[in-house]
């Protein structure tokens, strides 16, 4: 099998959310924002129109990274922080597949931070959904790179004292081709953002505010506090960056749609192994 022999994408066909459901029961706490993201993604995939077997969901480790098992698509639940390189390898080996990466803020911004930078820069045609709850939930409540500096926890009493960073600004600076923020409980608008992200060429990054009501019950307030539509579409990266640095951190919407060419999926026509073997020959008989 070589990359050239992979099938072309199938035609769009009518699908519903149900087509993307699996029989596996989520481990998430009742009220977890990730349920909303799962539903939005299933909606978005149905709207996008490619059948489950042409979709692959890739994740790392954490509460949100459990998501692939909860859909009917192909999936890869790998090690902590490494979903993006897995997805890049899969997409470049199989350009015919729709490859979507899902995970949390600890997985993507902390242990996987280097891959986040380089995935934005490399611009492989992927969609990356980060369910940001500003806490490590699976390990029972430690501050992540997006947690407020004064948030009190057992591991950092009185707060970590470290300022959170702006994922949108980082994605823009590193070269992501599509940048947006959604809110987990706004299922329909989030699905719309996800469809746009999936269809945009190159690396699409969607930060989703996804409340952890177990360790961050105050995030239930997000439902009221989210500034819906406060982000508007920029096609100029500098303008998008200025907006990312100035708007409220709970502003949602699409902030950037760029036109960087995606990392090449097309390859030169193969010439074969025989010519390569000849290079080794001395004194050819």
């Amino acid at each position: 099998m070589s990359i050239h022999e992979t099938a072309a994408p199938a035609c769009h066909q009518p699908l519903t959310l149900k087509d993307f459901k699996s029989g596996v029961e989520p481990i998430w706490c009742p009220g977890c924002g990730d349920f909303g993201v799962l539903q939005s993604l299933q909606r978005a995939l149905a709207a996008h129109g490619r059948p489950p077997h042409e979709v692959a969901l890739v994740s790392g480790i954490g509460c949100s990274s459990r998501l692939p098992a909860y859909t009917s698509a192909y999936g890869f639940h790998g090690v902590h922080g490494r979903a993006l390189p897995v997805a890049a390898g899969l997409k470049l080996a199989r350009p015919d597949l729709e490859v979507i990466v899902v995970g949390g803020d600890g997985d993507g911004y902390s242990i996987g931070g280097n891959h986040f930078l380089h995935a934005c820069r490399r611009n492989v045609n992927l969609t990356y959904i980060v369910m940001d709850n500003r806490v490590y939930g699976m390990t029972k409540g430690q501050p992540s790179p997006t947690t407020e500096a004064d948030w009190d926890s057992d591991i950092a009493p009185g707060g970590s004292g470290v300022q959170p960073f702006s994922p949108l600004a980082i994605a823009l600076a590193a070269g992501a081709n599509f940048v947006a923020r959604g809110f987990a409980l706004d299922v329909k608008p989030l699905a719309d953002i996800l469809v746009a992200a999936i269809r945009h060429p190159g690396f699409s990054f969607v930060e989703v505010l996804s409340p952890c009501i177990t360790f961050r019950p105050e995030e239930m307030e997000w439902k009221k506090a989210v500034q819906r539509g406060a982000l508007s579409v920029n096609t100029d990266r500098a303008a998008a960056m200025a907006m990312a640095l100035s708007v409220n951190e709970l502003a949602s919407g699409i902030i950037f749609q760029g036109d960087r060419p995606a990392y090449s999926e097309t390859l030169p026509a193969p010439t074969g192994l025989a010519a390569i073997e000849k290079e080794f020959e001395l004194n050819a008989a």
Partner: peptide, 12 residues
């Protein structure tokens, strides 16, 4: 991880 992703995709 890239190599493992490609392998999952079916390529040696």
């Amino acid at each position: 991880n890239m190599a493992l992703g490609a392998s999952y995709g079916g390529l040696p």
